[in-house]
Design a protein around this nucleic acid. Structure first.
Lengths: 250, 250
DNA sequence: TCAGTTGAGTTAACGGCGTAAACTGCGAAT
DNA sequence: ATTCGCAGTTTACGCCGTTAACTCAACTGA
């Protein structure tokens, strides 16, 4: 067996896909605020309540959309990485970073959905915890976000394994940070100095900061085209990771 | 004269203040999404259309709110700076940065309003340009944002004037970036190497990145309390600015 | 083959939203 | 004293998310 996919289930899955595609269109065309259940239903020739057969609320639909978008940008980034020589880890990291920036700039609405303020969705007076249903992954967006971060983290870790860059020894790291890093670390199956993940976090923060500011227009007060700034940041990161000499402008 | 403030005008100004205060309450209590004209009106014992006597749309009200919030965080930051010795510019910058982070963490809704994705507000199919009325500042939020940035930029510039830190010479900066920096620079009344503002941008991006990620919960996948990470970043920035030796953990 | 069940989809309705138009009534200006 | 401007109202339109009650086709089991 393992194939209990009835005809109904197939149709249902197809409809779910259609809904998400329509939602995606609305997101792209009208921004995160223009994403409405009624609009999606209209787009599909349905009435709004019909969608409740597939998603229990707009909120959940958005969550699934987020997960899809995460997976998509992950796919783009890994594809870009795989277009680089397998042994050029530093080059792969640079390419992945540039791909991320490019994706952010060409998909502003999706970027805002993933990386903008999450305060509006969630954190409202909802249930303290969602019903603990172990079957369904309770927050697909969260898991997809993990996969996304793992791409960068994996590359930084690989870089360290190939040719260690300078990191603080475990006992040089401030205890408050060390303990937290250790806790996070214990969830990962790799034996590396905690300092590696400290460096990763620093790199990721700078990458995120640059891309976020540019994508949200927070750099326009100074420059119109932030690409040189981004590249300068990349070069600096390459230095941090012990690959100053391999940095190349594209 | 210069005092044509009639009784009516005073009342009107007071009402405007009341409206903004109520809007602020709604923002704090219910997030950026919970900020509704009808809610504000209800809070004031008015009906919703009455607010249109004071603000032509919800959008404009939000814009004014943003400007107010900017001014408020600016005031907090300058107050914190002024609590430091006047000759300790580096200390002032550190204090201002910590104040910014603290404000962000204690005012999540306001922070999201100022620094979250601006894609939902604005950029929708509105008029290409607002009517060019030179009396009223057409975008108070934008101007307030400038003042905010100027606090950091001013401190970095002052730091350089007091004791120059290493920067790229103008002709070492990549032309694409140099020209843009020069254009921005020409709007400022200070004769400094372009590299200073390059360094400022880099610092600001890193500060923004750290605070933004923490405030939006994008660091919780790794650490619960990002304060050590923030302090590490600050220390690194102090180094960039030639003040590695003056950095002190608070 | 026929009854019973499931589930996709509908209509109708509730309460919320931003906003526009028309109207009321008071304070101030002429 | 009359007029006028403006604060505020009522009413209305068209959106929104969500719920409840219903219809009807397809699948199921005897």
């Amino acid at each position: 067996m393992a194939e209990p996919i009835s005809r109904r289930d197939r149709l249902r899955a197809a409809t779910v896909q259609e809904i998400k595609q329509a939602a995606r269109r609305a997101l792209v065309e009208q921004g995160t605020g223009g994403l409405s259940l009624r609009g999606v239903a209209r787009d599909l020739g349905l009435t709004a309540p019909a969608l409740y057969r597939y998603f229990p609320s707009r909120e959940v639909l958005v969550t699934h959309l987020i997960a899809d978008v995460y997976d998509e940008v992950c796919a783009e980034m890994t594809a870009a990485a795989d277009a680089q020589p397998a042994d050029d880890t530093a080059g792969r990291l640079m390419t992945v970073s540039r791909t991320f920036r490019h994706w952010a700039l060409t998909h502003p609405a999706e970027f805002a959905l993933l990386f903008g303020s999450p305060i509006d969705r969630a954190a409202r007076p909802e249930a303290a915890a969602p019903p603990p249903d172990p079957d369904e992954p309770e927050d697909p967006a969260h898991e997809a976000g993990q996969r996304f971060g793992a791409i960068f983290a994996g590359l930084v870790a690989a870089l360290y394994v190939e040719r260690p860059f300078p990191v603080q020894a475990d006992d040089e790291i401030e205890p408050a940070l060390r303990d937290q890093l250790k806790a996070w670390y214990d969830t990962l199956p790799v034996p590396l100095p905690l300092g590696v993940m400290q460096v990763f976090l620093s790199c990721w923060i700078r990458l995120y900061g640059t891309v976020c500011m540019e994508a949200f227009g927070h750099l326009r007060f100074a420059v119109e085209d932030a690409e040189p700034i981004f590249e300068a940041e990349l070069r600096s990161l390459a230095g941090l990771l012990g690959h100053a000499e391999t940095y190349r402008r594209p």
